[in-house]
Design a protein around this nucleic acid. Structure first.
Lengths: 201, 201
DNA sequence: TGTACATCAGTGAACGCGCGTTCACTGATGTAC
DNA sequence: TGTACATCAGTGAACGCGCGTTCACTGATGTAC
């Protein structure tokens, strides 16, 4: 008896054209992945959004992900950095605390979690994240506090620092509470009360 | 040819004694499951803790879970209710806002997330949870705000209500930030600043 | 109170599913000459 | 500039794993008489 071994080759069963792409295009793709992740992670949390969902949002399939990042954790850090930068840019447009607080505690920001502040959207998940992700948040938080302190008038530098921490805490907490409750009226009341309380720092 | 069908019975392959338990014991078990879940969910988030982990913590195996709850979501609602009740009981011991804030923004509370305030520990996850879970949080949040408002002195009732919302927002936000950063000194500064800012409401 | 039987709390194996990650493969891009 | 060849971005199937949930089973509890 002579054993006959048949090796069945996959034969490219319906694969779409998957050709190499130019360096420029790859860099563009990279940005799209980070942008998609920054939005989806804020909306659904790090653990609530899959790599596949991010890649689909970026118009790709999941397999190519590891040409861009070593792991999902590395993407999380990059996406968090991107989201925090966007948030910082928006906050820096305001010339006084009242305007910043009014923007931060707006109905729009409350409802648009995916494009909003990453500190509030992902702050609660930080304890469960890796070192890299937490380091990104900590560094950005320091800068954010310094920027807010610089907006404040009166008192000592230590006082302005303290009031900056209080203002950011109030904003993050109020937005968290407003998003958590299932009653839109209560959410609106929380936002309005916090605007009135923290806007005149 | 007469086909011989051999039915292989599992033969109780090493199963431990799994006898029925008295109603009292079952009620006790139920409480243990809820307690374990209340602690684990606060520490690790609803999605970060498995049914199996909760049952192990309660000294049981995962299979019996569905004699007590229809789903993990139902457990989440029960556990959240339990955790919020514990938190409310602790908060109600304080006779003025300063004492409450000092307790809430203590180093101990910052580090002991599993036994701490469920609003802060799970508030950020609320948007992704089912109706039942969100309803539990909303109802408790209303009561919490009323209790805090009753502690306040001076101003109109509307003013006390507004200040209660601001105080709770500040506490939740500051605790969230202190827990999120990876630098213990910065965390301590956030807690101290927030204590000084929100404790004299 | 005693007996015969139905109930059901808890066990551990199993199911289907989605996840993060890996892999063989394709063919345009990039490079060496 | 043109050619021959190596590289590698992206594809889609596959892997192992943990998850929520289901299930057959056990035997003490609970109940009907």
């Amino acid at each position: 008896m002579i054993p006959i071994i048949i090796i069945v080759k996959p034969e490219n069963s319906g694969q779409e054209a998957a050709m190499r792409v130019s360096r420029e295009q790859m860099a563009e793709t990279h940005e799209q992945i980070v942008d998609a992740a920054a939005r989806l992670f804020r909306a659904g949390g790090f653990d609530g959004v899959s790599v596949d969902a991010v890649m689909q949002q970026a118009g790709l399939t999941h397999g190519g992900f590891y040409r861009h990042f070593r792991s999902k954790d590395e993407l999380a850090a990059a996406a968090l950095r991107r989201a925090l930068e966007r948030g910082a840019a928006r906050m820096e447009k305001h010339e006084n605390l009242g305007a910043m607080v009014a923007d931060y505690l707006s109905e729009r920001h409350c409802h648009d979690r995916g494009n909003g502040c990453a500190i509030t959207a992902l702050g609660g998940d930080m304890a469960r994240q890796g070192k890299g992700v937490r380091a990104v948040l900590t560094a950005h938080l320091r800068r954010r506090l310094e920027r807010i302190a610089r907006l404040l008038r009166g008192g000592t530098e230590a006082s302005r620092r303290r009031r900056a921490i209080a203002a950011l805490s109030g904003m993050v907490g109020a937005l968290t509470l407003a998003r958590a409750v299932d009653d839109p009226d209560l959410a609106a009341e929380i936002l309005a009360s916090a605007r009135a309380s923290f806007g005149d720092g």
